[in-house]
Nucleic acid binder design. Structure first.
Lengths: 156, 156
DNA sequence: CCTGAAATTCGAGGCTT
DNA sequence: AAGCCTCGAATTTCAGG
């Protein structure tokens, strides 16, 4: 169960994972150690799965983002292709999609040349039939911060 | 410029944004304060754009992920539709896509009913012509952690 | 969930290049 | 000037109540 205070803590940590316990404690009206205890519990329960520093992709030479549908001919339930795609550097997300028996992947690369190389690499996977890419021209919003609505959350 | 030590620091902070400076210092062979100084500089230069706690979407009642192409009929260069989409709760990413004058958005909702509601809301935007959604059945990989290759990085 | 002690943070100031 | 180090007060975090 996620109560009102957990919700506040999660909201704060989503927008700044390095917020001090003292600051959180002030906002929620508790002692810092109690906040820490709740955070640890949320981690153990798998509600918080990690803390990531978010980087500016362009600053590290990854100026091109693309989404690619990868159509496969593997038996349903097989995950080999998904694992193989996940292992390729620059592949940020791999989702198995309803509908067209395909994976939808999000990739970040340095530019068009690198994207071509990556697509060629994917095309060499034995189970891959073809790919269909959408190149991103401009990213308006990109966040991992999720809206938290208390009532929809898990039961014990 | 991002040197070898910055690369190490960024790699560590990407996989765990709450790693203590003392721990990082041990790994890179420097004093904690020097690590802190480098981190602050990376923040000021915009290489590190933030720190996010990553949550398990299912734990907060967001069990359904989908990607939706939103076809618009707004003039090129306009960003109104993108802003409107960004403001909708559950919309995590909004990218303007090459090719079909469309936005590609990533959404998280509680289930099919919520997705239908969200698509209806999008359909009501005056500039939106139609939408085309791909529902995610299974997510194999989902990370914001980017591979860092020193040589491709920015110059001064 | 709160008190108290050990570890850590992060500023100021000094040293080396 | 730039970068790293040492030191010390404030904070984090762990143990115990």
């Amino acid at each position: 169960m996620i109560d009102e205070i957990d919700t506040q803590i999660l909201t704060i940590l989503q927008s700044n994972a390095r917020t001090s316990n003292a600051d959180i404690a002030r906002d929620v009206g508790m002692a810092p150690s109690a906040v820490l205890e709740r955070v640890r519990k949320l981690e153990r329960r798998g509600v918080i799965t990690g803390y990531e520093a978010r980087l500016n992709p362009e600053a590290i030479g990854l100026g091109l983002t693309a989404f690619t549908f990868v159509k496969t001919e593997e038996p349903v339930g097989a995950t080999d292709t998904g694992e193989a795609l996940s292992a390729i550097p620059g592949v940020m997300e791999v989702h198995y999609a309803a509908g067209s028996a395909a994976y939808l992947i999000k990739v970040r690369v340095s530019g068009p040349k690198a994207l071509a190389d990556l697509l060629k690499e994917i095309g060499r996977l034995p189970t891959v039939r073809d790919t269909n890419s959408t190149v991103v021209l401009q990213t308006v919003k990109e966040t991992g911060i999720m809206p938290i609505s208390r009532n929809t959350a898990e039961e014990a």
